[in-house]
């Protein structure tokens, strides 16, 4: 999978590269509108992360350009502007998703995977790992073809972990993911802990080949046994 990061801020660009390389993607970068323009005309990418506020141009114009070139790259806009107009405008121009800065690495991973999944969707929308399968359309969790009941939040948590396989997901990130934006995370950690405990129990009892590992006490990581 080949990803192009268009972002003018050097530090952020490098952080994103480091994180995405952990997912074994091939990552290229562009720091300016012009270099991005050049890259998208010359090469094909599976996904483009696009900062729309570039020093030498509006990133939204790159979307138009892609359309003109007849390319159907998946574009995720990463913007500091939490502006509805930009969001609507960007999506109307063909972007696949809109992520507001600052975002969590786990969230970016999840969005990129969602975009890829949509792209290579071959009739079924499910995640397979080891002996488990998570059917995203039916919202069903199977271990060795046995359906294990998960409540809604447990399902969401497991899905998030599967999209961030082998990566640390912090408790605050989980809380925010489950509760949505604009929610203070006051006294949520007990709840998160409780959900993780239940989930671990269900994974263990069903002999799933995955488990949730605690990392330094700040979060969890989904690993294959």
């Amino acid at each position: 999978m080949k990803i192009l990061i268009i972002e003018d801020e050097k530090e952020l660009r490098e952080t994103l590269v480091e994180s995405l390389e952990k997912e074994l993607y091939v990552v290229e970068t562009a720091a300016t509108f012009d270099s991005a323009d050049e890259k998208i005309s010359m090469y094909d990418y599976d996904c483009i992360l696009l900062d729309i506020m570039l020093p030498d141009g509006n990133g939204l114009n790159l979307l138009t350009k892609l359309k003109e070139l007849g390319k159907s790259e998946n574009v995720i806009i990463i913007s500091a502007k939490n502006s509805l107009d930009d969001k609507v405008g960007g999506l109307a121009l063909g972007a696949d998703d809109y992520l507001t800065k600052p975002f969590h690495i786990a969230e970016l991973n999840a969005r990129i995977k969602a975009v890829f999944r949509r792209k290579i969707l071959d009739g079924k929308n499910s995640i397979h790992l080891g002996n488990i399968a998570l059917d995203l359309d039916e919202r069903l969790f199977r271990v060795d073809d046995t359906i294990i009941h998960l409540n809604r939040k447990e399902f969401d948590i497991l899905k998030y972990f599967l999209l961030n396989k082998n990566r640390l997901v912090r408790k605050t990130v989980l809380a925010e993911h489950i509760w949505g934006d604009n929610i203070d995370e006051a006294d949520n950690f007990d709840f998160i802990y409780y959900q993780i405990k239940n989930l671990r129990k269900k994974l263990h009892e069903s002999n799933a080949t995955i488990t949730l590992e605690s990392v330094y006490g700040v979060g969890y990581k989904l690993v294959e046994l």
Partner: peptide, 19 residues
């Protein structure tokens, strides 16, 4: 908003990687 969010994004993401 913009000027504050980008440095914050860098802080958060770098520390997340560090973790």
């Amino acid at each position: 908003s913009h000027e504050l969010q980008t440095p914050l994004a860098i802080i958060i993401n770098k520390l997340e990687l560090l973790l």
